[in-house]
């Protein structure tokens, strides 16, 4: 069984709480990322300017293994602090169920 993250891009506001929560949790210096947020500004449908953000789980992401298995929290630090409340954590089955309810889901499996 694989574990991972499902994120509803529709509600990611680009606040960068995931990025900084991850840095704090893992003690990364500036320049090192577990979650990196990319801003996307592009012409959407009907000439509407579309502004989206894509949080990207880097190869450093271990889904906060120590935090979750050590009993400090049930959630990785990025999911805990996500201001748009648009991130889910779980096993692949649970994530797929969560993603089905999302408007524009992306999924990362480890």
């Amino acid at each position: 069984m694989r574990y991972g993250l499902a994120i509803d891009i529709e509600y990611c506001t680009g606040c960068n709480s995931c990025n900084i929560a991850c840095k704090q949790e893992h003690g990364y210096d500036a320049g090192t990322f577990g979650m990196k947020v990319t801003e996307l500004i592009y012409p959407g449908v009907a000439e509407k300017v579309q502004i989206d953000f894509l949080p990207f789980a880097t190869t450093r992401c271990n889904l906060c293994a120590e935090r979750v298995s050590g009993g400090e929290d049930t959630l990785p630090s990025c999911v805990r602090h996500c201001q748009g409340k648009c991130m889910a954590y779980g096993d692949e089955n649970a994530l797929f169920e969560a993603a089905k309810k999302m408007k524009r889901p992306v999924m990362y499996l480890k």
Binding site: C15, N16, K23, H81
Partner: peptide, 11 residues
């Protein structure tokens, strides 16, 4: 349960 980047960078 959530908060902003500035607070998470508090240290």
């Amino acid at each position: 349960g959530r908060t902003c980047s500035r607070l998470l960078a508090y240290t």
